[in-house]
Structures are given as structure tokens and as C-alpha cells.
Design a protein around this nucleic acid. Structure first.
Lengths: 204, 204
DNA sequence: GTCTCGATGTATCGACTCGATATATCTGCA
DNA sequence: TGCAGATATATCGAGTCGATACATCGAGAC
């Protein structure tokens, strides 16, 4: 699902890897932070699939924005780096842009209804991009999520009940807090569903 | 951290893989569900390290509990299976028991203070086993967690503030709900800390 | 009776992710 | 000047997931 997040961010704006990582963290909450060990391979996959392309960038943003003073030393540094790493240029940013294929892939990934039914991150991400969905797809997403949370809650409740005697106070506290969090999530989803429905009525 | 969970459950009771998986799910909440692709390799690692051992089990629980009627057909089936898979017996349960080394490993893993500072699952697991910690270790665990959540909240708030204009209503809803969940967690942790302190005073 | 279905049970595979690490540049400031 | 810390790309090993395979067992359909 990292691909979806990357494409969604690149839809708004051309970005390079490092900046992409930062935005992933603080746009979608701390839960969907990514490591470089996932991000760079994902970018390469997307590039190979033709969903994104690299806009050749100079050695640094500074050298691009202040070409008169920065360019000379930048060029020199670039030359040195190129020599040191055997011809491959390793420094400087690689700025990515989404392609038409990438746009199509984004739509497809976002709308996929088989979306892993128990994956919190994936839901959070889809909802954050819900603007790009049709109204009924949005409602479907929310209702599938609600059903899923309700089922989770039911199972958690029976688990707590059956382990009431077996569990000590700490394990019980964890289990109870977890069910509370699920209840909180459900009521949030239900507020969102209500808001969607009232939006729909306004259109009528 | 899967090792810690396995050892903790085996401390209470001898179990086989499948049952272990079920208990992981409903003892520690839906967040710490594990796949077989993690569980069985983890059990093998623990066995190789001498932390757990296999108690040789018959072809099935039924054959063990009702030996008079079940044993004959069970034996026959075992023979057939052994022949079919080239001598290796693949059916039947492998029941695991924790060893003395495993007990020591459990203590070590549970008390480890370097525990990944951003890993929610790991905290939940440690807290569920908090009974096995000394009172001051318990308090330390809770206070480290609180500090971590407070820092997360601060970063989330500045992120929301800076992206106030950039984000549409859906992305904003996700971000806001995420900060609410963190606040909820913090107040929970603080209740737990208060409870710990009052316990401590009672002992005095 | 037997046949099929879903739960129980162990196991592996490929794809993906993480945290640690390496390397180099740029920026600010002492 | 030099050096610490942010910026930036990249790889590695270990661990995890979801899918899949394979076998047994109990229950209910016919």
C-alpha cells in the first residue's frame, strides 16, 4: 500500500524521496511512517512500472535556486562525486513526477474493494484520499470499515469474557483499553457516515 | 517481539502452534495477531536456541484422550502419513513447553529498556506481562511510554497546524482522529501511572 | 453409509518492511 | 576553519505477512 501513498502525494506535487518520507509521516499520522528501506525500493518499483518518472535534478536545490553563485562549486562537487563513485552520480536529489499510467494506477489502488479487511493503515490511507473517490465508493469504504470494526469488537468482547478469570489485571487493562479504542473508532466512522449521507441529501 | 509473546503464553501453559496463534489474537487484542508464516519460524528459532522444547504428541488430541477406541485407526493413519511423506511425520500436534533458559530469556526480553520507542505492539505486550516486572520497572515502562506519546502528539499537532490549508477535509479528519486517539492513550497511561503510585503508597 | 464442508493443524514461499548502516553533501555557527 | 547536524540516496539481513499446500477430524446433508 506504500505505492498508493506515494502516488497520492506525487499527484499533488513533484517530490524527492526524503521529502516524501517526511510528508508520509505527518500527513497520515505517526502510524504510517515508512523507512527508507521500504521507500526507495518502492520508488524503483514504481519507476520500473512506468508509474512515476525522475525529473533530472541538479546537485542540490540551492544550486538550482541560486545558480549564479552556487553553480560553480556545485559543478565541481558533482565532478568529484562522479569520479569517486565510479561514474555513477550518487549525490543530489532525484525528483519524481507521476505519469498518466501512475494516475490510472492510483485510481485502481484506491478503489480496490478487496482491500485487506484488517489493515488499519490501508483504511486510514484510503480515507485520507477519499476526495478522489465517487460519493458511493466513499460510503462503501466507510461501511465496510464499520462492519469490520463491529466484528472485531464482538470478538474482543467474547475474548475478554472468556478470559475474565484467566487474565491478571494488567492483561485485562490492555484488553479493555483495546476494546474502548475500537468503540471510539466505530463512533467516529458513524459520524463520518452521517456526514456523507447529509451531503448526499443536500445534492438532491 | 513475537518471541516474548510466545514465551509469556508458554509460561502459563504448554501449547501447540495453532492454539498459540489463537491466544495471541484474543489475549493481546486484534493488533497483535500473527500469521503462521511468522509463528512457526519463531517457534523453530526458540527451539534451536533451547528456550522451548517439544513434548512429543500423538497423532491427535482425540487419540490421546480416548485411547481405547481412537488409537487403532490413529496408528493406521499415522503409518500411512509417515509413508506418504517419506518418513517425516507431518500431521499431529507439536506441543511446546518452556525451558529454564526460556524463562531467563523471557525475563530479559521483558525488561529490555531499549525497547523500540515507537512500537505500539511491543508496549502493549510488555504491559500485558507487567505482572512479571518489579514495581519500579513497571513504572519506568509506563513513563517512557507516556513521554513517547506526548512527543508524538506534539509532532502531530504541529503537522496538523502546518497542513491546515494544504489538507482537504478527509485528510484532516484522519489527522485529527489520530491525535484524538493519542490523547486518549495518554490519559489512559496516566490513570495507570496513578494506580501504580497509589499501590506503592499502600505498601509503605 | 458416505460425502462434502469447515475447522484444526503444520509448514513453506515470495514479496514487502523495518532498523541499522554506509556514504556524501549542505547549512549554520562557534 | 572546522565540525556537528540536517539533508539525501542507497543497501543489507532479519522478520513479518498473506497466500498456498497438504492432511486430519467432526458434523450435518442426502
Amino acid at each position: 500500500m506504500l505505492e498508493l501513498a506515494i502516488l497520492g502525494l506525487l499527484k499533488e506535487q513533484e517530490l524527492h524521496g526524503y521529502e516524501l518520507k517526511k510528508r508520509l509521516g505527518d500527513t497520515f499520522g505517526p502510524m504510517s511512517r515508512v523507512s527508507f528501506g521500504s521507500l526507495y525500493p518502492a520508488l524503483r518499483r514504481l519507476e520500473k512500472a512506468g508509474a512515476v518518472e525522475v525529473i533530472e535534478a541538479g546537485p542540490s536545490a540551492a544550486a538550482l535556486s541560486i545558480p549564479t553563485t552556487g553553480s560553480l562549486s556545485g559543478e565541481r562537487a558533482a565532478y568529484r562525486a562522479r569520479r569517486a563513485s565510479g561514474g555513477r552520480d550518487t549525490r543530489g536529489r532525484k525528483v519524481y513526477r507521476i505519469t498518466a499510467d501512475g494516475q490510472a494506477l492510483f485510481e485502481k489502488l484506491l478503489a480496490a474493494e478487496d482491500a485487506s479487511p484488517e489493515d488499519d493503515r490501508s483504511f486510514q490511507l484510503r480515507l485520507a484520499f477519499a476526495r478522489h473517490l465517487a460519493a458511493d465508493q466513499r460510503l462503501g469504504l466507510l461501511e465496510r470499515r464499520r462492519a469490520q470494526l463491529i466484528e472485531r469488537l464482538a470478538r474482543a468482547r467474547t475474548a475478554v469474557r472468556s478470559g475474565r478469570e484467566r487474565l491478571d489485571s494488567y492483561a485485562r487493562a490492555v484488553a479493555e483499553h483495546s476494546t474502548e479504542a475500537t468503540e471510539h473508532d466505530i463512533s467516529w466512522i458513524e459520524r463520518l457516515i452521517a456526514a456523507e449521507r447529509s451531503d448526499r441529501e443536500e445534492v438532491d
